[in-house]
Nucleic acid binder design. Structure first.
Length: 319
DNA sequence: AGGATCCCCCGCCAGA
DNA sequence: AGTCTGGCGGGGGATC
């Protein structure tokens, strides 16, 4: 169970990436039913820590790295420059993994996990600008480009900047269930869940945010998850050819129609597992899986636990 | 649990 | 030249 989170910083810390870690793990949201965590920002020599990018301000950090020794999760934020983490930091990261804690990197923070030898043989990712460099510097690392984050168990790496939030929300879900994760997301006013495999690029979200042509169809789908949904039907509903629909879908949503629909069905199934006592078979049909086997297959593949186990952990009667 | 069938979905290319 | 569309084919994943 996750109870204690430490974030490691040193000179060159980037405020946005550091800030999202503080926002995710440091805030008290107990009035919204979110467990309160012990949280600390730590640095090798407590005191002033310069931020990167010549932003003209410093942080005053109270805690030394010894404070990270009890953490269940040790986060390494992004720094200006990708090399040369202090040796004490690398030792802290290695010690965390050795004692069974998890480590999480945001953006170029993955390079420091690499320096600590924690990426060897593991799948990982970083900002799309740097995936090639990461793979070159750490040949043993299995770098996955173009995803938002990678959860390889003890080691979680996320892509550029804001994808760190997605990785954090993923961890909230994994540790505390979808209801808590949604409460955290709601407080931060971000979408509750973007799947890790989603593309880092969502072209039209940047290029023409006002022209979200698929929004009505997406909304319709989430209201009709229990029905059979073929791509041809959705394309017709969007008044496009199937080929154009699939292309626009990837551009706007960042994944394929079928993968997205499956992800929505799993999300709904998760909610129903937590909030109701309906049998898994019933939930499968309620969310549009033809057979319960399909739900179980996708659920265990993406969540790492069976629907029943998920309910035992996060359901109403869970202890 | 495995195999047949279905349906995505992506690369390719021609046309607007 | 450059962009967008949509039909086709095939391989592979999903479904039953």
């Amino acid at each position: 169970m996750l109870r204690d989170v430490a974030v490691l910083v040193w000179d060159g810390a980037l405020p946005f990436e550091l800030g999202l870690l503080c926002e995710s793990w440091g805030l008290d949201r107990s009035e919204h039913g979110v467990p309160r965590l012990d949280f600390a920002v730590c640095t090798p020599r407590p005191g002033p820590v310069r931020t990167g990018l010549a932003l003209g301000f410093s942080l005053d950090v109270e805690h030394g790295l010894d404070r990270a020794a009890s953490a269940d999760l040790v986060c390494v934020s992004a720094m200006q420059g990708h090399a040369g983490a202090p040796p004490e930091v690398l030792a802290t990261l290695r010690a965390a993994v050795e004692r069974g804690a998890r480590v999480l990197s945001v953006c170029s923070g993955a390079f420091f996990l690499g320096e600590a030898g924690l990426l060897d043989g593991r799948e990982c990712t970083t900002h799309w600008l740097h995936t090639d460099e990461l793979a070159a510097r750490f040949p043993q690392a299995r770098v996955v480009p173009e995803v938002l984050y990678v959860d390889s168990g003890q080691v979680i790496t996320s892509a550029g900047s804001a994808a760190g939030l997605d990785a954090c929300l993923h961890l909230w879900r994994e540790e505390f269930g979808a209801r808590v994760a949604s409460a955290v997301a709601r407080r931060m006013v971000v979408p509750p869940h973007r799947d890790g495999g989603q593309a880092q690029f969502i072209r039209s979200a940047v290029v023409e945010p006002q022209c979200e042509t698929l929004r009505p169809v997406l909304d319709w789908v989430t209201e009709h998850l229990d029905e059979p949904l073929s791509v041809d039907d959705l394309a017709r509903r969007a008044a496009m050819s199937p080929r154009t629909f699939a292309r626009r879908f990837r551009d706007e949503v960042g994944t394929t129609p079928h993968a997205w629909i499956t992800a929505q069905r799993l999300r709904r199934a998760e909610e129903l597992l937590e909030a109701t006592d309906r049998p898994v078979e019933r939930i499968a049909t309620d969310v549009g899986f033809g057979q319960a086997a399909a739900l179980r297959h996708h659920f265990t593949r993406t969540r790492g636990v069976s629907p029943q186990d998920y309910r035992r952990t996060f359901g109403r009667r869970a202890g």
